[in-house]
Design a protein around this nucleic acid. Sequence first.
DNA 1: ACAACATGTTCGGCCTCTTCGAACGAGTGC
DNA 2: GCACTCGTTCGAAGAGGCCGAACATGTTGT
Lengths: 307, 307
Amino acid sequence: MLSHDELALLEAIRDSGSLSRAAARLGKAPSTISHAARQLEGRFDALLFDRRRYRLQLTPAGQLLTQEATRLILDVARLSQRVKQVASGWEDRLHIVTDEILEFEILLPVVRAFDALGSGVNLRITHEVLGGTWEALREGRADLVVGATNEPPVMPHLRWFELGAMEWVFAVSPRHPLAKIAEPLQQNEVIRHRAVVVADSSRNVGRAYGVLGGQPTLAVPSMRAKVLAQRDGLGVGWLPRRRVATLLKSGQLVEKRMADPREPNVLYVAWRSDQEGRALAWWLEQFRQPRLAKRLIQGLDMHDHTE
Amino acid sequence: MLSHDELALLEAIRDSGSLSRAAARLGKAPSTISHAARQLEGRFDALLFDRRRYRLQLTPAGQLLTQEATRLILDVARLSQRVKQVASGWEDRLHIVTDEILEFEILLPVVRAFDALGSGVNLRITHEVLGGTWEALREGRADLVVGATNEPPVMPHLRWFELGAMEWVFAVSPRHPLAKIAEPLQQNEVIRHRAVVVADSSRNVGRAYGVLGGQPTLAVPSMRAKVLAQRDGLGVGWLPRRRVATLLKSGQLVEKRMADPREPNVLYVAWRSDQEGRALAWWLEQFRQPRLAKRLIQGLDMHDHTE
DNA sequence: ACAACATGTTCGGCCTCTTCGAACGAGTGC
DNA sequence: GCACTCGTTCGAAGAGGCCGAACATGTTGT
């Protein structure tokens, strides 16, 4: 419908401003070019060339066609590249969804290593909170989820392995009223104080983990924000133990033993076994390495950057 | 590089799930289809068909190609349409730039009439303030300007005619200090009070018409906003007489005679004589009709909508 | 003004690529 | 097992692209 040769013809005519020169540039006979030009006009049922003057020129319609055809040919070239890529086993794009409690910084060197492969795969990394990761996998918004919490739900073609377990600590600011209550803390003491929860802006405004019914809440956009909020005494709640180790040691947060403690949380890596490409396999291989898994589970210990 | 026939082939294979049926649907011999399919694979240097099972299937690469090719073919079809349109004299798109003092509402029925022609021309109507209209024409951002003020500048291929003259009135809120000053007002009395000016957010933050040097200003986004601001006593300045007739009559604005009055302003319709298309000609014909010109010049008389 | 040159078109013939039909091997279903 | 479908290979026929020759028209140089 619009071959590469035809575009080359149009461009040659536009640039050289003559059929003969275009023919010379393309290494063809002038008669061939003349014939092809007329055929092109017939196909589009439009006057593409202004033959009134000595050397013919592109009409506005011809200019439009040339300009847009250039864009189209670029599109086709890119498409060709993508097709080759998929044929060689690399996905066209890979959508990785992590739970929000995993920190993106730890994935950065892995992304850099992936880029170094030169696969051409379009990487898309987003995060979800709570059950959002499983939903993303189920609904096809994700090809691979990392750090999904709770038990894997039933889902066709689902495969997974455990990334590790995350330990939690109930901690409050030393200036918070709960800091002075005798341990272990009972539910009826905690429920009177506001809980800080991580909430997604778009989906899943519903349930939150470790929050008691009827308890007032402060929703913040990330686990990092939650740590900061609790350090400043804006509310209480469970925090990843390894990420607040320094804050606990320096006394900016105080651990409070609870009457019913929170069990360590198992985090999963999961994907769909249909359409396993090379990029997916590569990432799974990375997450199976204990060193990366451990760093993801531990997270970044938060120092105080405000002083 | 990717013809319409080849797309039809891919789609037929995807939908029928077999070469023979695809051949039957396309009205060709099965051998032809087989040959074409292999050739396509050779051109893209990729396995597009999975021949391991009895009936062949599209590989992921083949699926990607089919899907994207569909989009490409649509693009080409649209392009073909646009080329035909341009060849038949209609522009691909027409960019009309009006001065801000003209009200868009008055153009609405004309736009509707233009749509009724079914030309397919993409209309783009924006507005500029002060000299912005001439600049837009000079820089190719506009194909047609309406309501341009001041004398037409020198510009190659420029053509224009007069739309009409707009009368101005210096008016203030009855609660404004200037309302009680004896007429005619002198410059040194006006300069002490803030002027309301219409300013563009992006370009041309510079000069404004009828503002004295050293006078404080309040810049608002439109002539409509300027009228409202002056009615509420936020500042003073010149207003189109016909648009504030009702406000003057009801006493919400008070006319003040000036020591040096503002002459009526001639508004122009202008365009470039190179590349005159049918859409441009149609719009020029509309603006040459005295009835539309008069309505544009007069604008919409502003009633009080706040009570 | 005239010659030399450049440009675009038409026409007949050559050649490549597409298309077809026939034949064959392989897989499927009753 | 038999009838059927499916995909492939191969040679022949046909269509379309391409070339060179010839020609009409327009431009440039002297």
